[in-house]
């Protein structure tokens, strides 16, 4: 077989670029996913929304006329106006500044804990599946035990004992520590089929060390699942952060998050509805956009989906 035939594989379209350098094929894969992603209008809408929200979280505090922690005592529970774009709370805090700051906090907590959850779940899930035998049995037993722990309560206790300033870090920690267990079980199941693939056997028979196989062959090949899981995990983490804060168990004053604002808003829903509406809209937009992106990514990465266009 001569080299001439190398140009006629299914990836023939990509070969021209590939002549040039090493990494181009990877770019090719990403371009492909990007192209399939872009074919779904809903996914693009989600991405645009998310970008706008992130910009808002970053730029908002700078363009607001008031800081989130400097109440305007001359304007208590005021409706939106030129000075307070989203109105003020009963304590005089500027809702625009609060929402921008709270959104940033919620996003930070959501993204950080989701990434951490994925990393922990990937390592533990694949390891349990890879070693089979008693490691798998004991590992699964431990996972099952951990699943029954009342995590909500424990997170609340952890955050309660922290101070207001670094409370959000403890909250991230709490959500992470109790959030990875379910994912680890899912990843273990996926690894079960992966570990039977010939390239994993081949590596074993070559004498490659077990953790090298896990790092080099197993985790990268779960890549698409991990990406989707991380993205959708952001929604879950934001939701639990909001729920905890809403109950007064999460972020505490002077810091703020969407849940904290919502909690402040729900008591004045009849007299000052804007306090509730602004953070609610921000929260709904955030989870909605991430969900759209997650769906779009799943279809773009899954080779069997119908993103291939028509003849």
């Amino acid at each position: 077989m001569a080299d001439s035939e190398l140009t006629v594989t299914a990836a023939a379209v990509l070969t021209a670029e590939d002549e040039q350098s090493t990494g181009l094929r990877r770019t090719g894969r990403f371009t492909l996913i990007a192209r399939r992603f872009a074919r779904r209008p809903s996914a693009v809408v989600g991405l645009v929304l998310l970008v706008l929200l992130v910009v808002f979280a970053f730029v908002g505090p700078r363009i607001a006329q008031w800081g989130y922690d400097e109440p305007d005592f001359l304007a208590l529970a005021q409706a939106p106006s030129a000075e307070h774009w989203f109105g003020t709370t009963t304590g005089g805090s500027d809702v625009f500044a609060l929402v921008a700051r709270g959104l940033g906090r919620s996003l930070a907590i959501g993204i950080l804990s989701s990434v951490a959850i994925t990393v922990i779940a990937a390592i533990i899930g694949t390891t349990i599946a890879f070693f089979e035998g008693w490691v798998e049995r004991v590992g699964m037993w431990v996972l099952d035990m951990l699943l029954v722990i009342p995590s909500f309560l424990l997170i609340a206790m952890i955050v309660r004992s922290s101070s207001g300033a670094n409370g959000w870090i403890w909250l991230t920690f709490g959500i992470t520590v109790f959030g990875w267990i379910g994912y680890a079980r899912v990843l273990r199941t996926l690894t079960l089929s992966l570990r039977e693939l010939d390239y994993v056997h081949a590596a074993r028979y070559m004498g490659v060390r077990s953790f090298t196989i896990i790092r080099r062959h197993l985790i990268p090949n779960l890549g698409s699942v991990l990406i989707i899981q991380t993205v959708l995990g952001v929604v879950a983490a934001v939701n639990s952060e909001t729920a905890l804060s809403f109950l007064g168990l999460g972020i505490k004053a002077p810091d703020t998050s969407l849940g904290t604002i919502l909690q402040a808003g729900q008591s004045v829903i009849l007299t000052a509805p804007w306090v509730l509406i602004a953070p609610s809209v921000a929260l709904v937009l955030l989870t909605f956009s991430v969900q759209l992106i997650g769906d779009g990514l799943r279809d773009a990465i899954d080779p069997n989906s119908r993103s291939g266009g028509r003849a």
Partner: peptide
């Protein structure tokens, strides 16, 4: 002692370039 498997699709890690595949052993 080395092995060659039946299915050329699954015996090479799809995420590794050929150089890394051959360098592994």
């Amino acid at each position: 002692l080395q092995i060659v498997f039946q299915d050329p699709m699954s015996s090479l890690d799809p995420r590794m370039p050929v150089y890394d595949v051959l360098a592994e052993p």
